[in-house]
């Protein structure tokens, strides 16, 4: 299992459309994706799960990816978050 701590960088945080983008990327891979915030862990492939995190800008989350394609999945998800969910702002 790969673990990586990351900070949400975009201005609006993990809002609905960002959550959709995240889930779509996560679902491209076979690995399971979990997100941990404040000790709570949710499924990274579920939109409602991500929305309940209510992660605003500056929130630290931990991505936990495990499975055959975990390397690719983690780097793709990190890229998405680091690119601020491809938003213009």
């Amino acid at each position: 299992m790969l673990k990586k701590k990351i900070t949400i960088k975009n201005k609006l945080g993990m809002h609905a459309r960002a959550a959709v983008k995240f889930v779509n990327v996560a679902n491209r891979f076979k690995s399971s994706v979990k997100i941990e915030k404040d000790g709570n862990e949710i499924d990274g492939k579920s939109i409602l799960g991500i929305l309940t995190l209510a992660a605003v800008q500056g929130t630290e989350i931990v991505l936990k990816v495990s499975g055959k394609d975990e390397d690719k999945a983690l780097s793709a998800l990190l890229e998405l978050i680091n690119n601020k969910f491809l938003e213009k702002e």
Partner: peptide, 14 residues
Amino acid sequence: RLTRNFMEIRGLGI
């Protein structure tokens, strides 16, 4: 509280 009563179904959305 945020997601009470909501559900997500693939193909139907929220």
